[in-house]
Nucleic acid binder design. Structure first.
Lengths: 171, 171
DNA sequence: TTCGTTTTTGCAATGTTATAACATCGCACC
DNA sequence: GGTGCGATGTTATAACATTGCAAAAACGAA
């Protein structure tokens, strides 16, 4: 079973947009008493258009294309909001921000970062997290929160690229 | 809040030093063709004296107490070396560096970061990592390397501090 | 010893990531 | 028309990390 679900295979059109989905998410925010303002919506659209994730300042540059006065706080505030709402995640080790593969399901996610190709895979089903949670519970710890990041060689790279660690992350 | 003290379950004396252990580690480096120079040794000693971990610039400040000309590259180079040798780890999400609880055993480690008290616990035995690795393997991924960071409520905080998320980490 | 090589260190500048602090705007509500 | 409040604008700065180059130390071989 390909339980993996690489960020892109939700049927995303890579050029952005997805207005219907964004409208739906805006509604969802509304229901929660939050509002997906134009800035936040734009940030989310950009993240979704870049399944490999974006650095904060890359996002800033993209936003400045439409909104020349955007500044660091602009994007960090938008990102904080999206993360709070479960619409995006931060990959701490790479300072990378990605849209949530499930739009906003808000369930804990396991991020597998392949050290060989640097690709980020968001794993949302399969027993890995449960197994981990149980093992932790057995030692008195309680798995708290989403966004568990793990270095793991992805299926594509197993056997293929062993040594050289090719570059990655062309946007 | 009591003081930090977490990784300390090794029975570390908190005031630093441990010359015998450091000598041993220096030898161990030698065998591997690496050398634990005075700067690196000093950095390691400081990390070990602060079981809660240190930020790079905190470490820098401490090193400058003895070596006024120390600069950012000084500490980052030392940290890179220690991490390479398996003598220290970096907690990516907090930009925090900690001495390896097992000195240099170089086995994958699971870091549990309590969102309530910010305490970092290094877990090196117990089935958690194994369980995770197996679950990943079942989906075609191969757990790659050390330093898995996880947000998990620590035993001390379970039941105790639920809501407010008090601050932590005064050194 | 002297030479050449490699590793380590010193140092200045810069790059990257993130937040503080404060002012302002726009809008719902009374 | 004020007031409250969330969102945004704006400037500056904090915090984290790296690059590039040159000087010095360490070390092995001639």
């Amino acid at each position: 079973m390909p339980a993996s679900l690489s960020l892109a295979e939700t049927g995303l059109c890579p050029s952005g947009a997805e207005p219907a989905l964004l409208d739906e998410l805006a509604l969802w925010c509304r229901e929660r008493g939050a509002s997906l303002t134009p800035i936040r919506r734009r940030a989310l659209a950009l993240l979704r258009a870049h399944p490999g994730g974006l650095k904060a300042y890359e996002l800033l540059a993209l936003m400045q294309a439409e909104q020349p006065n955007a500044s660091p706080p602009t994007v960090y505030r938008a990102l904080d909001f999206l993360i709070e709402q479960g619409l995006a995640h931060k990959i701490g080790r790479m300072n990378l921000f990605v849209a949530c593969a499930q739009a906003a399901h808000r369930q804990p996610s396991l991020f597998l970062i392949c050290p060989s190709c640097n690709r980020v895979t968001e794993l949302q089903q399969g027993g890995a997290l449960e197994a981990l949670a149980q093992a932790l519970a057995a030692e008195g710890h309680e798995l708290d929160q989403p966004e568990v990041e793990i270095s793991a060689i992805c299926p594509a790279c197993r056997g293929k690229c062993k040594g050289p660690a090719g570059p990655a992350r062309e946007d």
